[in-house]
Design a protein around this nucleic acid. Structure first.
Lengths: 257, 257
DNA sequence: AAGTATTTTCGGTCATACCAAACGGTCGTG
DNA sequence: CACGACCGTTTGGTATGACCGAAAATACTT
């Protein structure tokens, strides 16, 4: 039911503007009425009406003199995440993976054609990153996402690329479609994916897919680390084994739940 | 600017219905158009229009034949949480608290008069709970929330109680206003709060406030455990010390950031 | 093949989302 | 201290589109 490009689309325009305003709040890291209005090129009064409504409903808060995204979204998002079995099963495994490697370990799913970080665990002495739970990224820019794409039907992948494009995030990001498909093929051979500074400069990643009985990806796990800490043998042998091991454990546990 | 009861309120009705529908999806754990329409007593066609827009915008997904809350909310909520310094500073401390006690450790803030679980960490061998990150609860039903209320101006507390009421969640929940204020006073004397099955049967909690330089709560931390595991001295001495210690560390770290 | 449930399309209509103009407050600045 | 510049907010009119009834597709049982 889900394979063709989406239908016509937005039918309630007011909801669209409401979320446009929320997005603006995010991009501006909090802002006042006028700043938002300027940012999305919309009359002040319209923005005002929406912000007041969203505040009343509990999805926007006022901190001092500016509006910010409120806890209402966290409630809904946290609930949604909690409902997912991949999360329930995967979280503890990702935790132990982070512990064993003393690096960042992550869990990702695909939704609406983009990669969604479901959970991120940090080791003891790890660098600070911009990857919070919920963060959305282009699939082809991470080892996680490429793992997922490698185990997704080709026409589906094509549709995703058409919809979201292949922008360069760093100068190492894959931007050529054929290059991507070749890489996906070799991921299928090896069973795991790598990412050398394709989304974050200085960071290398190893990801492995979590597949179901139809051999399609339902998610992926990864370890990411500053490149100097994972040179040589560790990047080629140890880490891939640990990441794939974690993915397999999750797969097994998924079949019994 | 924030102390009186809120202003008039909702100005964009369409947004209100949109979120009403999302709430219905949550309460029904996913549902189809008709089920939602029935649940909130609204024409099917209206619900249909809204669900399609929300899906198009990425805030609702279709899993099989039913709509579910999508990752868009997690993105916004995760972002909002990530922006909060209490979270940034508190998370690692809550993690170590959970490790030391081998029990659930939690971080809560107040927003719009309700308690919001910002983060929850579990020990190795802990029971499964219904407290996910983002979950909202009545403040007076948890040790966390009572810690916060104890360090909140009285008229503010009154306003919160007026707005959200004091429903009984278990048969131990405080439902009497005077009883609550007496307890808040003794919390201020002791410096920490307790909760004996006031929100979840069988669970006991110890919470301590995180205060700012004005001695007002900006949040709270807690440990919660099955009551049989924390009887006697541990509940009266060891745990309170550990929880208060964690709260203090967070307070100190907050002043330098 | 008919019956009951669904999701979805189609159009009309009246409420309302949107917006221009104006008001009151606060903040710098000359 | 007046001035302009900017802010959030109130007000009221209007054209738009949110809302919804009726009915057509579609799916499942029986």
């Amino acid at each position: 039911m889900n394979r063709t490009a989406d239908d016509d689309g937005v039918r309630v325009g007011a909801t669209a503007t409401a979320f446009e305003i929320v997005q603006a709040l995010k991009e501006l890291d909090g802002a006042g009425v006028s700043a938002v209005a300027r940012h999305i090129d919309t009359p002040k009064t319209t923005v005002f009406d929406h912000l007041k409504t969203l505040e009343e409903l509990g999805y926007v808060t006022t901190a001092g003199d500016e509006y910010r995204i409120g806890a209402g979204f966290l409630e809904l998002g946290g609930y949604a995440r909690n409902q997912m079995t991949v999360f329930e099963v995967g979280k503890p495994q990702v935790d132990t993976l982070a512990g064993k490697t003393d690096q960042h370990a992550n869990l990702m799913i695909e939704e609406h054609g983009v990669g969604v970080f479901l959970y991120t665990a940090a080791g003891e002495n790890t660098v600070r990153l911009d990857t919070y739970a919920g963060r959305q990224v282009h699939l082809q820019t991470t080892a996680l996402g490429k793992s997922i794409l490698a185990y997704t039907p080709r026409d589906w992948v094509e549709a995703i690329l058409n919809r979201h494009g292949m922008p360069a995030i760093t100068d190492r990001t894959i931007t050529d479609r054929e290059e991507l498909f070749e890489e996906l093929a070799s991921i299928r051979e090896r069973g795991y994916a790598t990412d050398k500074e394709e989304r974050v400069n200085g960071m290398w990643c190893i990801g492995a897919p979590i597949t179901n009985s139809d051999n399609e990806a339902v998610g992926a796990v990864s370890v990411s680390a500053p490149k100097n800490q994972v040179q040589g043998e560790r990047f080629r042998e140890t880490l891939p084994n640990q990441v794939q091991g974690t993915a397999n454990v999750i797969e097994v546990n998924l079949t019994y739940s």
